[in-house]
């Protein structure tokens, strides 16, 4: 098991971490979520997984969504909390643009550009039609263009 996890880590860490970091854009949070993802992986029966790459992204994606749900609850409880100024200043315009995208648009652009998956692979992971992937990517790029111009 240890050897398997080490192999999965070595082979896929950049791929999974790239996705998580792209989604949350914060190193500390991304590392916590990477850890949570691997805890879930360890608890799963990995011998039965047919497409490891797609499955790992699905696990990472669920972990990110769980994190956002927890954050939303916290924000509802404590509306006064705000983001650290330093974090905002260090981000590139494009990163700020991605941050503003809705989760559905954010994940297609990350899966396409950071993970470099094709439309079929993205559609399989998100369990949607290829046409939906096309239209979400178009919308994501249009919104990014608007945020860069504005």
């Amino acid at each position: 098991m240890k050897l398997e996890i080490e192999l999965i880590y070595k082979q896929y860490v950049d791929y999974i971490y790239g996705f998580i970091y792209g989604m949350v854009q914060n190193k500390a949070v991304a590392e916590d979520l990477l850890q949570d993802t691997f805890v879930k992986v360890m608890k799963s029966d990995i011998d039965k997984i047919e497409n490891m790459k797609a499955w790992l992204i699905t696990v990472a994606r669920n972990t990110v969504y769980d994190h956002w749900r927890r954050e939303k609850r916290k924000l509802n409880l404590m509306p006064f909390i705000r983001r650290k100024r330093r974090d905002i200043d260090l981000k590139l315009d494009i990163e700020r643009g991605i941050e503003k995208l809705s989760p559905k648009l954010k994940e297609v652009i990350i899966l396409r550009e950071i993970n470099q998956l094709n439309y079929k692979e993205i559609a399989d992971i998100l369990d949607v039609e290829i046409g939906t992937v096309k239209s979400r990517l178009n919308r994501a790029r249009k919104e990014l263009r608007d945020s860069l111009e504005g």
Binding site: M1, K2, E4, I5, E6, Y9, V13, D14, Y17, G18, Y21, G22, K27, A30, E31, L34, Q35, F38, V39, M42, L92, I94, E95, I98, I109, E113, I114, R141, L144, R145, L148
Partner: peptide, 27 residues
């Protein structure tokens, strides 16, 4: 936009996290 998104620098996860994750996998 495609070039800009691809150009985002993704940091490497720290060694501490790697050790922690590998360490979880107990026999």
């Amino acid at each position: 936009i495609k070039e800009k998104v691809r150009g985002i620098e993704i940091p490497q996860p720290s060694l501490r996290i790697k050790k922690k994750i590998i360490g979880y996998a107990r026999p």
